[in-house]
């Protein structure tokens, strides 16, 4: 109930922002009859209608996870973002071992297999990508070897 209502309302606000932003699109000197603004307006209007339906006639509440599960999802997201930023400066092996180790631990909380999974995936995928598929991956941070 509430989930659908909140989502519908958020989408209506986003759609209004989308339409507002579409009003600032620069129209070329010799536009076609529709121009570049009309289609985005239609999309925004459609989203508003769908959002209203979700607010007025919501489905039964989704089965939301408990706070602990939400926390571990948030943590997994942070790990992925950190992984995205560390790939270039730190090379492939170290971030991959750490990130996949953490994700593995989150899926099955046993430390030793998680560490082994992290190490195994880092080395295994590196060999696969670098030597079997020929991708230009850098194994370690620059200047280590």
């Amino acid at each position: 109930m509430t989930g659908d209502r909140v989502f519908g309302a958020v989408m209506i606000v986003l759609a209004l922002g989308y339409i507002l932003s579409a009003t600032t699109i620069q129209v070329p000197l010799f536009p076609d009859p529709m121009g570049p603004k009309a289609f985005p307006y239609l999309i925004g209007a459609g989203v508003i209608v769908c959002g209203l339906i979700m607010v007025l006639r919501p489905d039964p509440e989704a089965d939301w996870p408990a706070a602990t599960a939400l926390l571990s999802l948030a943590f997994a997201t942070i790990v992925m973002v950190a992984y995205a930023y560390s790939l270039k400066p730190l090379g492939f092996l170290i971030p991959t071992a750490i990130a996949s180790g953490i994700l593995s631990y989150q899926l099955s909380p046993r430390p030793v297999p998680a560490v082994l999974t992290g190490l195994g995936l880092a080395v295994g995928l590196f060999v696969l990508f670098k030597y079997a598929l020929g991708l230009g991956l850098v194994p370690f941070p620059k200047g280590w070897f």
Binding site: L87, L103, S108, F129, L137
Partner: peptide
């Protein structure tokens, strides 16, 4: 193959694929 190995692998393949 347990999911605890499979899914971290899927994640890493996704990252490397998009990044490369």
């Amino acid at each position: 193959v347990p999911p605890a190995i499979l899914l971290p692998g899927v994640t890493m393949i996704s990252f490397v694929g998009i990044y490369s």
